[in-house]
Design a protein around this nucleic acid. Structure first.
Length: 198
DNA sequence: TCTTAGATGTGA
DNA sequence: CACATCTAAGAT
């Protein structure tokens, strides 16, 4: 059985926690730069106070009006673009926030966009990786299943994945909805739990 | 290596 | 007013 590919929409037609876990190890292609997804977080449309849908009608409208696999990009703290993927399933809709990536190609372009040559500084955080990949507000609404130049690709093999609690939020802090590629030194914050989920 | 303050735009 | 962040600066 081949791994389900995030090039097809069905990959994103699963619940947010499953999608967040399954995106670890996948490769992001964007603006002539590529990298392996190291860290993600799941946010659920309902029952999750930390999700935009909890306070923002515009987020609920976005879910209603777009298919699974659409990029949800927004500005945080007035300065940083955060890159999410919309996922939709019969059980639960929501977003997967991409939090860290290991650069695989386009390194010098990333260094330019980040004004740093330090590998550890390039994509080890959601604001940093958006900068390195040149992701901006104009990318909001991009269909990740439509173009081979702006998409996610399946992981090249089986990877070990750890789960942890989400970070950087002030509410609903206890859901174990952060996923990390086990052993990676390029994540935003190291894993505090010791739980391997795959 | 760690902690802290401050920059800043948008939705409601 | 809250906010899913980052950086520089200063302390340890």
């Amino acid at each position: 059985m081949p791994l389900p590919s995030p090039l097809s929409r069905s990959f994103y037609q699963r619940d947010p926690v499953t999608c967040a876990r399954e995106l670890i190890g996948c490769e992001l292609l964007w603006n002539k730069t590529t990298g392996v997804v190291l860290e993600t977080e799941a946010y659920a449309e309902f029952g999750d106070e930390a999700c935009h849908t909890f306070r923002r009608p515009s987020a609920r409208k976005f879910i209603a009006e777009h298919p699974a696999g659409t990029a949800y990009v927004y500005l945080n703290y007035g300065m940083y673009w955060l890159f999410n993927v919309l996922v939709k399933s019969p059980v639960s809709n929501g977003f997967v926030l991409i939090r860290a990536i290991e650069p695989t190609s386009g390194r010098s372009l990333m260094e330019q966009r980040r004004s740093s040559t330090n590998l550890k500084q390039l994509c080890s955080g959601p604001g940093k990786l958006s900068m390195a990949f040149g992701i901006r507000g104009s990318d909001h609404g991009t269909d990740l299943c439509a173009k081979a130049s702006r998409c996610l690709l399946a992981a090249s093999g089986i990877v070990a994945i750890q789960e942890d609690c989400r970070i950087g939020i002030s509410t609903a802090q206890d859901y174990p909805w952060r996923f990390l590629l086990k052993g990676s030194h390029l994540v935003s914050v190291p894993c505090r739990k010791d739980k391997t989920v795959r």
